[in-house]
């Protein structure tokens, strides 16, 4: 029986990678497909940023079990770090991503230390407070130029100026890197330590997992990934201001994206990011003035998903698939 299970698992893993490959291939071809206009590529870029931010959240919430409602704060940290270094040091987009990731990782590490003793609902409230704190800081500290905002020059990658399509490919490449990073991370010893902490902190500590080290590490890695999304966000609109980044919506959206897709599965953030970022655009196709209506539909859809598939869409689909196999008299189990 164990052999069959192992074989089944291997098959599923294979399928998952195949699905990933197809997804990325489709994403690469997408801008060249007939009938696709430039704005669609920008829209897709937005979705990519949401997916990436949700990946960051999933490291912390899904794999380490620390619920965060504050990753909008890390989005802002990444965005402002890159914006300031572009403005004052003239760095390009790629360097900006590294700067944003590093800064975000540092802030994440610090926050992880401050909130070392928190868990559960208290952690959610603490991180929400962090997001508001970042919002107040960028609103009031002069270097961030508050509501006036910082305008950025056109985007350059290794010397070349890039437009919408070029930006899309840059973002896609970055998403490829973060996806690979997350998938390698969760299979590594570090990822297993995170999951051990999630399942039982006491048992993990008793087995020799250094709680302080891995908790702060989870915070900084998670923050770094979301920080890169923030860098993309800043350069996507060539503008950062507190009007955008002090907004609590991002934090909420990223958590929703993570939970909707399935917080501890690789495909989860993809489904969730699509849900959160694409739904308003999708509704716009049918209704003239979506805005508030999109909010209502989004909320309703979210509640529906939670009632039908509490563990997320991806997990729900897998369960449905297994159940169907059982019903149809599948070959295993």
């Amino acid at each position: 029986m164990a052999d069959i299970n192992a074989a089944f698992k291997a098959k599923m893993v294979q399928r998952k990678w195949a699905a990933m490959g197809v997804l990325f291939l489709a994403a690469v071809i997408f801008p060249m497909a007939p009938g696709v206009e430039s704005w669609m590529a920008s829209e897709a870029t937005l979705i990519i940023m949401y997916i990436m931010a949700a990946q960051g959240v999933s490291i912390l919430t899904g794999y380490t079990g620390l619920v965060t409602v504050g990753h909008g704060g890390f989005l802002a940290v990444g965005a402002y770090a890159s914006a300031l270094s572009t403005k004052y040091l003239g760095t390009d987009l790629i360097t900006g991503m590294f700067v944003g990731a590093a800064m975000s990782a540092f802030v994440g590490w610090a926050l992880g230390l401050v909130f070392l003793r928190l868990s559960g609902a208290f952690m959610a409230i603490g991180t929400l407070g962090f997001a508001f704190f970042v919002g107040t800081v960028v609103n009031n500290v002069p270097i961030f130029e508050g509501r006036e905002g910082i305008s950025l020059p056109k985007n350059h990658v290794i010397g070349f100026e890039i437009g919408d399509i070029g930006f899309y490919y840059t973002a896609l490449a970055a998403l490829g890197v973060t996806t690979l990073f997350v998938s390698l991370l969760v299979r590594s010893g570090v990822g297993r330590a995170f999951m051990a902490l999630r399942d039982s902190e006491k048992a993990a500590e008793a087995s020799g997992v250094n709680r302080v080290f891995y908790r702060t590490l989870a915070f900084s890695l998670s923050a770094a990934v979301t920080g890169v999304a923030g860098v993309l966000f800043a350069h996507y609109v060539n503008y950062v201001s507190s009007e955008v980044f002090a907004d609590i919506w991002y934090s909420v959206d990223f958590l929703v994206a993570t939970v909707v897709g399935g917080s501890a599965v690789l495909l989860g953030p993809f489904v969730g990011g699509l849900f959160v970022a694409f739904l308003p655009t999708f509704i716009e196709l049918f209704v003239d003035q979506p805005g508030d209506l999109a909010f209502i539909i989004k909320g309703g859809a979210l509640i529906f998903v939670l009632i039908v598939a509490p563990a997320g869409v991806v997990v729900g689909l897998v369960q449905l698939f297994r159940w169907l196999r059982g019903k149809l008299g599948g070959d295993t189990q």
Partner: peptide
């Protein structure tokens, strides 16, 4: 908690 987020969306909308 996430379900109350859904209500948050709806009531804002």
């Amino acid at each position: 908690f996430t379900a109350t987020l859904g209500m948050y969306y709806i009531l804002h909308g």
